[in-house]
Design a protein around this nucleic acid. Structure first.
Lengths: 198, 198
DNA sequence: CTGCAAGCGGAGCCTTGTTCCGCTTAATAT
DNA sequence: ATATTAAGCGGAACAAGGCTCCGCTTGCAG
């Protein structure tokens, strides 16, 4: 009987060796496929790339979102952790907020289809929405509160709403030169600013 | 041989009587189904509701977008025509722009899945994107230009980009109380405003 | 009334998601 | 080393939806 120690860590703890190997192969395959075909690539494609059957993919990652989250967890974590650091380092809370939002937007626009998937209410992807927002909304809130306290922006904007708005602005056909999410996010942030009494 | 007069008007000109009847039935059925199941409802559902075969639907509306456009054409037209009228009636160009954007947002949020479909790069819907934008971007441009001329907003914002941004903000799971597209669009518009030298 | 092209329907093929179950094999006990 | 066994595996199979194709039906002109 397997040892079954340390239950439920991030990944393959207490799994059989072959299971752990497959999980790693799947993660690697998914990362590659996501880059080339977007996060909504067919499951079979990922399974084939990893050299496993589709059953295996569903056993390790029951919902699509589980796989996506597993692939991007590190980056989301990094983004979340950078929030407070920016707040400490930047000259003003608003500058920190801007910097952090830039980070988030960069992350989204470089992940083909991620922003779309995050809003998709189709089965499988809803957990994605939940994960991203659970992890990032508190960080956003902290930055927002600080900027409000510094009287740089108007109070009343909800972090959840802002995050979703930014995410939505990042949805789009790939690299249409006429549409740059960054410019619109910048506009949105400017709308947040308090008409300063300079 | 049929008369073949008046080629290619909006709808069933010069068609056989049964063909015209089917086209009308399809339009009506689609309108109903779009309301209850969204614009991405299965084709078969619409065909069934109209009492025709799927072949018939594809003959009349080769791409999904053709059907959607046909259903909403009147409303889009109305929205487009209201732009100049608002500009003439409103107290300021910016007020007109706001009013018009409100109209557009109302239109989008009440059409389950339309905003999403408009950005979808999946086959079938791309013509939707094209139609909406072709029709509405010039109107938006007119309003934008007027507001710039009145020095109410900063120059440099592209109408295409603005329209897409607004459309994107309207994407969302249905009626999440935590997310109101209107508030974010308002924020975006505020970001457009020139820091007035009041 | 007749001929025929316009129009029709839906069977059928393809892609993709998801489940299910008999077989394989890693890990342990002896 | 061998036996035991449950964890894990693969992929056949089913469901749903998009789209096409072709033999049949029918409105309409002559």
């Amino acid at each position: 009987m397997p040892a079954a120690s340390d239950p439920g860590k991030t990944t393959s703890r207490g799994k059989r060796a072959d299971a752990a190997r497959n999980e790693r192969a799947l993660l690697a395959a998914a990362a590659e496929v996501f880059v080339s075909s977007g996060v909504d690539a067919p499951i079979r494609t990922i399974a084939a790339r990893a050299g496993v059957g589709v059953g295996t993919i569903y056993r390790h990652f029951p919902a699509r979102a589980d796989l996506v989250v597993a692939v991007y967890r590190h980056q989301v974590e990094a983004c979340a952790e950078t929030g407070p650091r920016l707040l400490a380092d930047a000259t003003t809370p608003l500058a920190a907020l801007r910097g952090w939002v830039d980070l988030f937007v960069d992350f989204l626009v470089t992940k083909h289809g991620l922003a779309t998937a995050m809003q998709s209410d189709s089965s499988g992807f809803d957990a994605l929405h939940a994960y991203f927002l659970d992890r990032l909304v508190p960080v956003c809130e902290q930055l927002l509160d600080a900027a409000v306290a510094a009287e740089e922006i108007e109070p009343g904007v909800q972090p959840y709403e802002l995050m979703r708005g930014i995410g939505n602005l990042c949805i789009g056909r790939d690299s249409d030169p006429r549409y740059d999410p960054r410019r619109l996010v910048e506009l949105l942030l400017r709308g947040l600013e308090r008409p300063q009494a300079a």
